[in-house]
Simulated scan of single mutants.
Amino acid sequence: MATQPVFTISLQNVHFRAYHGLYPQERVEGNDFIINLAAQYSTANPQIVSLDDTIDYGALYGIVQEVMARPVDLLETVVQQIAQLILTQYPQVLEVRVSLEKTKPPIADFNGSAVVEINLVR
């Protein structure tokens, strides 16, 4: 019995300037964000030789760009939307993990970043 290969395709340390946040100032000034995502997918093809046999990481980046361009209040909403769109558009994806880091959260005397991550399994 042949095993079906499982691959992981990732986008790492993808930087965006976006306008997510609860506070009006965040919607005006924006913030710097870093996205990391990993999508595990299976394929019936034992050899990947064509883009049609895999998932185009440029298309994954397009999904991230689309969601990051629409300001929302919560980081959880952003990661949920990205993960759901990937699962919807790519039925071969078995699991997707997305993290979103806000590099300068509006917290007094805070030196660090805030990160939200989601892991969805089909």
Results as ranks from 00 to 15, higher is better:
Val6Glu: 15
Val6Met: 13
Phe7Ala: 10
Phe7Lys: 05
Ile9Cys: 14
Leu11Arg: 11
Gln12Gly: 13
Gln12Ile: 12
Asn13Lys: 11
Asn13Gln: 15
Val14Glu: 14
His15Glu: 14
His15Lys: 03
His15Gly: 07
His15Val: 06
Ala18His: 05
Ala18Met: 03
Tyr19Glu: 07
His20Ser: 01
Gly21Pro: 08
Leu22Ala: 10
Leu22Val: 11
Tyr23Cys: 00
Tyr23Trp: 06
Gln25Pro: 00
Glu26Leu: 00
Glu26Thr: 02
Glu26Trp: 03
Arg27His: 12
Arg27Glu: 10
Gly30His: 02
Gly30Glu: 04
Asn31Trp: 04
Asn31Ser: 08
Asn31Ile: 01
Asp32Gly: 05
Asp32Arg: 05
Phe33Val: 00
Ile34His: 02
Ile35Lys: 01
Ile35Trp: 07
Ile35Leu: 05
Asn36Ala: 06
Leu37Gln: 09
Leu37Pro: 11
Ala38Asp: 15
Ala39Thr: 15
Gln40Asn: 14
Gln40Arg: 14
Tyr41Met: 10
Ser42His: 13
Ser42Asp: 14
Thr43Ile: 10
Ala44Phe: 08
Ala44Leu: 09
Pro46Phe: 03
Pro46Asp: 08
Pro46Met: 04
Thr54Lys: 11
Thr54Ala: 12
Ile55Tyr: 13
Ile55Val: 14
Asp56Pro: 12
Asp56Phe: 10
Gly58His: 11
Ala59Pro: 03
Tyr61His: 09
Gly62Trp: 05
Gly62Ile: 02
Ile63Ala: 01
Ile63Thr: 06
Val64Cys: 02
Val64Ile: 04
Glu66Thr: 07
Val67His: 01
Val67Asp: 03
Arg70Lys: 13
Arg70Asn: 13
Pro71Leu: 08
Pro71Ile: 04
Asp73Leu: 05
Asp73Met: 04
Leu74Lys: 01
Leu74Gly: 01
Leu74Pro: 09
Leu74Trp: 05
Leu75Gly: 03
Leu75Trp: 06
Leu75Arg: 01
Glu76Tyr: 09
Thr77Ser: 11
Thr77Gly: 05
